[in-house]
C-alpha cells in the first residue's frame, strides 16, 4: 500500500533525471578544474620561460664561470657574468634585515601571544596587517630619503647608496610577517600546556620561553624561513636605496646591487629582445627562483616534520 502511494506521487520534472542537467554539471565541474589547474600551468610556465631564456645565456657564459666569478660587468667592454657579485648584495641586505626582524618579530609575537590582554592584541594585530599592505616602493623612499640620512648623522662616512639603510628598512617591513606567523603558531599550543606550567609555579616568562616557544618551534622557524624568502626576493627597497652597481662585497656600508635590483636596472633600460643583456636577467631570475624555492621547500619541510601533535 505504502509502495503504491510512493509510485503514485507525481515527481516534479525538475527533479527527474535529465541528460541536459547532468551535462551542464559536468561542463561546470570541468571549467572549475581548469581554473584550479591554472596554478600548475603558471608554475610550469615560470620554469619554462626562465630555463628556455637562460639556456642560450649559459651557452655564452659557462655555468661554472657564472657561479664562481665575482665580477658582474654586463655593460663594460669586457663583459663578465659572475652571479656572486649579485648574491653577495642579496645575502648582505637579507642578513641585515633578519638581524632587525628576527628579534623584534619574535619578541612581538611572544608578547602578543602570552602577555598582551585580549584588547591590546585585537588592537595591534590589525595594525600589523595594515603594515603588511604598505607597498615596498614607499619603504624604498623611506630608506633613501629618511633612514640613510639619519644613519649619516651617526656615521658621516656613509654614502647615499648603501646596504645598511635598505637592510634595516627591509627588516622593519618583515617584522609583521614574523610576528603574525609566529604568534599564530604559539596560540595554537593548547591551553592545557600553559595551565600545566602555571600549576607547577612557572611564571609567564618561564612558560613562554620553556614551554610555549619550544612547542611552537616549527611554526616560528617556518616564519623565519618565510622572512628570508621575502628578503631575498624583495626588489624595490634595494633597487631604490642600495645603488645598482654590482659589487662583490659583504660590507653593509658599501653600495651594491642585489639580484632583484639588477633585473630592475636592466628592465628600465632599452631591452634588446634576445640579446645577452636580456638573457642575463633570466639567468639571474632563475638563480633567485632556485634560492626562494629551496627556502620554501625547507619551510614546508620544517613545518611538516617538527610539528608537535597534541
Amino acid at each position: 500500500m505504502a509502495i503504491n502511494v510512493m509510485q503514485d506521487t507525481v515527481i516534479s520534472p525538475k527533479l527527474s533525471k535529465s541528460f541536459r542537467r547532468n551535462f551542464i554539471e559536468r561542463i561546470i565541474e570541468f571549467g572549475l578544474l581548469i581554473s584550479a589547474a591554472f596554478a600548475v600551468f603558471i608554475t610550469t610556465a615560470i620554469v619554462y620561460v626562465l630555463v628556455s631564456e637562460a639556456i642560450p645565456f649559459f651557452e655564452y657564459v659557462s655555468v661554472y664561470e657564472f657561479l664562481t666569478d665575482t665580477v658582474w660587468t654586463p655593460n663594460y667592454s669586457i663583459k663578465r657574468y659572475g652571479i656572486l657579485a649579485l648574491i653577495s648584495g642579496t645575502l648582505t641586505t637579507t642578513f641585515i634585515a633578519l638581524l632587525v626582524a628576527v628579534p623584534l618579530g619574535t619578541i612581538t609575537a611572544i608578547y602578543l601571544s602570552e602577555f598582551a590582554s585580549h584588547k591590546v592584541r585585537e588592537t595591534i594585530k590589525p595594525i600589523l596587517e595594515l603594515l603588511v599592505g604598505v607597498p615596498t616602493v614607499v619603504f624604498g623612499y623611506f630608506a633613501l630619503m629618511l633612514v640613510t640620512p639619519f644613519l649619516q648623522t651617526i656615521y658621516p662616512d656613509l654614502t647615499t647608496f648603501n646596504m645598511l639603510g635598505p637592510g634595516i628598512v627591509m627588516g622593519i617591513m618583515i617584522v609583521p610577517y614574523i610576528a603574525s606567523v609566529s604568534e599564530d603558531a604559539m596560540r595554537a599550543v593548547p591551553m592545557s600546556m600553559r595551565e600545566g606550567a602555571y600549576a607547577m609555579g612557572a611564571t609567564r616568562f618561564q612558560t613562554a620561553i620553556r614551554v610555549i616557544a619550544p612547542a611552537a618551534t616549527s611554526g616560528i622557524v617556518a616564519s623565519y624561513i618565510l622572512a628570508i624568502s621575502r628578503a631575498v626576493g624583495e626588489t624595490m627597497i634595494v633597487a631604490i636605496a642600495a645603488g645598482q652597481q654590482p659589487t662583490f662585497t659583504f660590507n653593509p656600508v658599501d653600495s651594491a646591487a642585489t639580484i632583484t635590483a639588477y633585473i630592475v636596472s636592466v628592465a628600465l633600460g632599452d631591452l634588446e629582445h634576445g640579446g645577452i643583456g636580456y638573457q642575463s636577467i633570466f639567468a639571474a631570475g632563475l638563480t633567485l627562483l632556485v634560492m626562494t624555492l629551496v627556502l620554501n621547500i625547507l619551510g614546508h619541510w620544517v613545518r611538516k616534520k617538527y610539528t608537535e601533535r597534541y
Binding site: A39, I42, I46, V49, G233, T235, F282, L288, T292
Partner: peptide, 12 residues
C-alpha cells in the same frame, strides 16, 4: 606560487 617573489612573475 604564494611564495614566489613578485619580480619572477615580471620575468614570466
Amino acid at each position: 606560487l604564494a611564495g614566489v617573489p613578485s619580480i619572477i612573475y615580471g620575468l614570466l
